[in-house]
Amino acid sequence: MIQVINGLVYGSFLYVLAVGLVLIFGLRRVTNFAHGSFFMLGAYVSYAAAAHLGFWTGMIVSVAALAVFGALLDRFVFRPLSREEPIVTLLVTFGLLFVLEDAVRTIWGKDYISVSAPEALSGSVTLFGSQFPTYRLFVIAVAIAVALGLAVWLRSTKVGLYVRASSVDPVTTAMQGVDTDRLSALVVAIGTGLAGLSGTIAGPLMALSPSMGGYIIIDCFIVVVTGGLTSFTGAFVAALVIGQFHNLGLVYVPEVASVIPLLIMAAVLGLRPQGLAGPRK
């Protein structure tokens, strides 16, 4: 049972990262290879800020810095490239991944860095007769809060309605008077801010390194594709499923653990080419 909860933990921060990618893809139709490096950058920014300001302020600084970075990225990269072939934007984000990795390597070095959980969450609780780190439960709580927050925002607010409409038909949405460029900047900012949040909460779970984003982005893309590309619910379910199988694979069949998420994606796409919750073509 503890392994199942560990799988939930991995699925949780995978969801927080992947849902940002879903938001960005929905509005900008950008396959953002740099999203993993935003996760990595968020982890480092949070680590640096936390050294002076503490974990919680570090988290806020990381989310805010990545959100501003995302808004600028949308304004000066995604928007000008929106009339180009998708491959152009894809290559630019791929290049950005290397630029950010090198920048972090230059500033913080290439050695692994350990980050401690905040004092309030550094203990453990008894779960199913075993000791379980409190911080890991906090990660699950963050994912639930993000999922609920996004659901309320998208379903109950005007801006959420415009985001849902624009992710399906940006031209018709704009024809109603919505400035879809400003909307996209907001959504990309939220998406990259969530990458910063994901990097921050991942810090105490995994050692920081400039290449940490490269590892996670593969699972992240698997979650997004399996979930149905633009579906928030699909991403949530896929993240939890991939998280479970990833974790159980590491425990019971470590030799093939890295292949399991790919096999799940292939199986889902074989049965439902549109993904778990993607719109049927």
């Binding site: 005007k158 309605l161 415009y162 849902r164 409409a165 399906v168 038909d169 018709t172 949405t173 109603q176």
Partner: peptide, 13 residues
């Protein structure tokens, strides 16, 4: 707009 209800399509207007 697909995915939106009649009410939501009107609200979009």
């Amino acid at each position: 707009v697909p995915g939106l209800t009649v009410r939501e399509n009107l609200a979009l207007g």
